[in-house]
């Protein structure tokens, strides 16, 4: 199997001490990957440093054998919610259309084709009816879906999603997971920061267990063990029903 993401000894420090240290893993193509770890473990930081949104002190990242800069078009990113101005004068369709900008290129306008594509992405997340809504008039879960649709519209082959399930209801979560599985079927790789251990085993093929250091990276069957999970959470998991 080819490698989608290869990370070698990433170390990131915001202040004096590193928040990620010597994190090394590599993920084969076509996997649905869950990134799991306690609050402050550095999950968001890991995604951001892979995408070069924060500087690394040390370490290498390659995406399908090339640098991130060379592969921007292959990468889709769904940030942890709430960083945008929801009052921005733009509607749901417009936001999704922004996902196409990487393909449209400088100075050009989105074509009809792009709009149709954006609409179909909205449709996939069940938000077609809201295409014309100003984004502040959507509920939190709906906003999340619009952002997901935007990532879909990017037509990336590797997706990085920071807690896409935060604040969405169970039905939406199911819908999103179905969608991610469909992406997987198309041979795409999806990395998802996830908090719910109850569902982790069921959702993902591959797990990254992270707590400043990498605890484990591998297929769910090998990594979703009480022992490793306990280690990830410093032995603080009181209760783990699924194992």
């Amino acid at each position: 199997m080819k490698t989608a993401v290869n990370v070698e000894k990433i170390t990131v420090a915001y202040k004096k001490t590193p928040v990620l240290q010597d994190v090394t893993f590599s993920i084969p193509e076509g996997q649905l990957v869950g990134i799991i770890g306690p609050n402050g473990a550095g999950k968001s930081t890991l995604l951001k440093s892979i995408l070069q949104l924060v500087p690394k002190t040390a370490g290498d990242v390659s995406i399908k054998g090339k640098t991130v800069q060379q592969q921007r078009k292959l990468i889709g990113y769904v940030p942890q919610r709430g960083d945008v101005d929801w009052d921005f004068p733009t509607n749901a369709l417009d936001v999704v259309l922004m996902g196409r900008y990487g393909h449209i290129g400088w100075f050009k306008r989105p074509k009809k084709k792009d709009k149709e594509h954006a609409l179909s992405c909205l449709d996939k997340v069940g938000m077609k009816a809201y295409a014309d809504r100003q984004i502040s008039q959507l509920s939190g879960g709906q906003q999340q879906r619009v952002f997901l649709a935007r990532a879909l519209a990017q037509d990336a082959s590797i997706y990085f999603m920071d807690e896409p399930f935060a604040g969405v209801d169970a039905a939406t979560e199911r819908a999103i997971i179905a969608l991610l599985n469909e992406l997987k079927k198309q041979g795409k790789t999806v990395l998802v920061v996830h908090h719910d251990l109850q569902t982790a085993e069921e959702y993902f093929d591959w797990l990254l267990l992270l707590n400043k250091h990498l605890i484990a990276s591998g297929p769910v069957s090998k990594t979703f063990t009480t022992d490793l999970l306990q280690k990830t959470y410093g032995g603080k998991l009181a209760f783990l029903s699924s194992s």
Binding site: L53, Q69, R72, Y77, P79, M98, G102, F107, R109
Partner: peptide
Amino acid sequence: TVMYKELKITSFDPAMAFALGL
């Protein structure tokens, strides 16, 4: 006119714009 979509995305979501390589 020329930079409309670039201005729009960098105003709305600079992190996303950066991730797209703008």
